[in-house]
Design a protein around this nucleic acid. Structure first.
Lengths: 236, 236
DNA sequence: CCTAGTTACGTACACCGTACGCAGTGCGGT
DNA sequence: ACCGCACTGCGTACGGTGTACGTAACTAGG
């Protein structure tokens, strides 16, 4: 009997089956898919061990045969949706390819609004994350720069996309738990903001708000941000 | 009796006292300070209503006289540490001023490692956050650009700093709850990564790892990232 | 002065992650 | 062929969480 709880382990290094005893009723992918299904439908906070087990159709504690801790379940979830990344043959224009990567990542996160909240550097080791990273590096083959710089570019782009989509969506995820609507909350916040600005203590913010009264085009803002990050690494 | 739970409200718009009834034993700042003290000392996960109440020296449910939901307690915490931002008179070189802002924000987050996890666009309305934003805009006075662009720059810089420090620190925050050390976990993860790379399926990652075997200088990486974001908005 | 609104807070509920123990199952070694 | 044991499945239980609700004490406004 191995003392499982006290030794560090990576979920991906642990074999899915060891050969002895009865065959497991589900695969690791089944578990991940059930958790993803719940997160997509009811939000990340609804992903509890009990709910996932119920969705899967087994007892709660049976989950711990597949996943040592809930943290690892999160890791499985991120890897599962990372499989949705479409990996194409890079076309030679690394800036265009990287912009395409950014847009695809954004689309993925909009399909699964809980992903930004789970993004962590430690999840970068999962199988599908490695494939994704290798693909990004392949896109950067035409760029004449050391790998260190390329990795910094990829990290910066991914971080920017994650932050951006997170700001765009986690309020929507958050509002699910609130007893009032997002529109109502925004209205109250804007009213408060207006009252603060009206005091005259923030002249530049006041100017900023009178300058641009129209609704902001999120799509265009994202487009510009991506281009700026990519161009920041282009040789002059 | 107002039905408090069903109407949206901003914590900052709610008056701290209404005049009727016994005087509150603590101020809102006392509550925030107690929560910050716990988060600094024991991590964000230790910030429970019971712990904060105990730290403050009152009953658990008394907290709800000061804060309608735990979410608002988080908002108070972020605002409380936002007061630590040093606001100087901008010197005319907006790029230098912005770099200084970035470094100061990073230092603040390193003092309070739980801040990146709580960063959310909705917290941008707190009093000290408004002061901070106005200061950033003041730094950007010499830059000839519409306020929309300036706000995009500030958002991008803040997001990058937050992401960066988060990646740097939340593993440390996370490891507090794990039954093994961060070094042990890193060793296991690196071993697994090596075994995956050894399969030859990721030639570029393999090349990247053989290229740069030395330890990475986090300070220099951060410096470069800040400079890149700032320079991306400089007129050519 | 009275009363309505507020503070303080104990109790209770539903839910969480997961340690533990037990029954059943089927492969590996003899 | 047959143990034995490692494994799966899972019920129970523990200590934690946020917070709804009810009650007692208190004080300012009419």
């Amino acid at each position: 009997m191995a003392v499982r709880g006290a030794v560090p382990e990576v979920i991906w290094a642990r074999p899915e089956r060891t050969g002895r005893g009865p065959k497991p009723a589900y695969t690791r992918d089944d578990v991940a898919a059930a958790a993803v299904r719940i997160a997509d439908a009811q939000g990340l906070d609804a992903v509890s061990m009990r709910h996932v087990a119920a969705e899967l159709g087994c007892g709660t504690m049976s989950l711990y045969n597949y996943v040592p801790r809930k943290e690892d379940l999160y890791e499985l979830m991120v890897d599962a949706v990372s499989a949705e990344h479409e990996l194409w043959e890079p076309g030679g224009d690394w800036r265009a390819d990287l912009r395409r990567v950014a847009h695809q990542t954004r689309a993925l996160m909009r399909r699964h609004p809980w992903v930004p909240r789970l993004m962590s550097p430690v999840y970068g080791f999962s199988p599908h994350a490695l494939r994704y990273l290798e693909h990004c590096l392949a896109c950067l083959d035409p760029l004449d720069a050391p790998y260190g710089t390329k990795l910094e570019l990829i990290a910066m782009l991914n971080g920017m996309v994650t932050t951006y989509v997170r700001n765009e969506l986690d309020t929507a995820e958050r509002v699910r738990a609130l007893p009032w609507s997002e529109a109502e909350e925004n209205e109250v916040r804007m009213a408060y903001l207006g009252s603060r600005i009206g005091t005259g203590a923030y002249p530049r913010m006041a100017a900023a708000f009178t300058e641009d009264a129209g609704p902001i085009d999120l799509e265009a803002v994202f487009e510009r941000a991506v281009a700026r990050v990519v161009d920041a690494f282009a040789p002059r």
